[in-house]
Amino acid sequence: MLRIEVDMFSGRPNPVWMITEEEAARKLLGAAREMRAAVTKTGAGYNGLGFREVRVENILDDVRAPRGLPQKFAVGPTGKENLDAAGELARLLIETMPLRSEVRLVEHAVTPLDEKLRETALEWMQVTARLMRKPPGPPPPPPPPSNPLITTIPDSKCSQCQYEVSQYNPAFWNNPATQPYNNCYNYARNWRTNTFAQPGRAHGAGTSIMACNTVTAAAMADGLKKRCNCLPQSEYPRRLMALVIAPGYDYHWYRHQRGGFWGHKPGSTAARNYDSNGVLITDPQTCARGPYTNFCDFFYAGKSVVIN
């Protein structure tokens, strides 16, 4: 039995399904063995916004993977020199996404599988493939010097309001006990829940409709306020967050950091302060965001904002 996961979302759980039919599993593993140059470790390729990789895992302890294949591996047009072969194998795996899952998984409550999602995964994979073929951009900027203090600053867009910016601290998020279980919403709120937090879920107001108005309503149910709706000092520390949307599919959040730039954490990948082109994020409205084309709004989050 194989577990297949398309690592492509930032806020929602990734599409995931099981291949329970032995012959189908054997056929896919055989294709992976024949294209061994396309197989890589999970997380070894592109780790920005949008499609990252397809993960394959054998979940039975009494079935060995074919010779030359690990029990868990990834494929995609990102992690190997032979991008064409890797992309072809990833396409074969994505096309096994069932229209109706015969094995009902927890993730399906938020990310149901359908034909449109399968086609979108293939489209997003092509976007990433084109990005990987571009000449590499400048290296990511180094983090600013470590400083444990939080600074209160006036909001440049609404000077009557203030909020707090804290030091950029990716090490807090990028350790094995934290990184896989916290997403962009956790990072932007600066609250590690280890639950892959969803807007509105803590207050029974979650949404499966990925649009600016619906995700905004869900987040405001958690206590977020739109920018320039000033928060009092009693809400210290107050964060400035930004919301963008991949229309119909996913959301993504950013947080303003000390030093004038923005940080974010795409899904279960590492926290960083640069965009899809490796450029320091000074404005989430104009940075490279892959398929997250809709900029929604800026928000404040005070200490009373509870997420889960």
Rank of each mutant, 00 (worst) to 15 (best):
P136K: 14
T78E: 09
L243V: 09
L99Q: 12
T216E: 13
N308D: 15
V244T: 15
P140V: 04
L240P: 03
R255Q: 10
W253N: 08
N229A: 14
W191R: 15
I94E: 05
P139V: 06
K134H: 01
I307F: 06
P112I: 01
P143E: 11
P140H: 09
A246M: 11
R55G: 01
L224S: 02
R189T: 03
E81T: 14
V106K: 13
M8Y: 06
F73I: 05
A205Y: 06
R36A: 15
Q257C: 05
Y185D: 01
M1Q: 12
S208M: 09
F295S: 11
Y254M: 09
N194F: 10
F172S: 09
A219Y: 00
G87H: 06
P232E: 13
G259H: 08
G206P: 04
N182K: 05
L280S: 03
M18F: 14
R192E: 13
A44R: 14
I245K: 09
A25K: 12
T269A: 12
T193D: 07
R36P: 00
Y181V: 03
L28E: 11
D297C: 01
G206Y: 10
Q179V: 06
S268W: 04
A31F: 04
C161Q: 10
N194T: 08
R52M: 01
I59V: 15
M241G: 04
P142F: 10
P142S: 13
E123Q: 07
R192M: 10
G43R: 04
V306Y: 12
A86D: 04
T214I: 00
R239Y: 03
A31W: 11
S208Y: 00
H108K: 05
Y300P: 01
T214H: 08
S166R: 12
G137C: 02
A217C: 00
R36C: 04
T40V: 13
M210G: 07
M18H: 15
A197D: 05
G68M: 02
L89W: 08
N174D: 13
T120I: 00
Q198G: 00
G248A: 07
R91Q: 15
G48I: 02
G200D: 05
L149H: 11
G50A: 06
E102G: 15
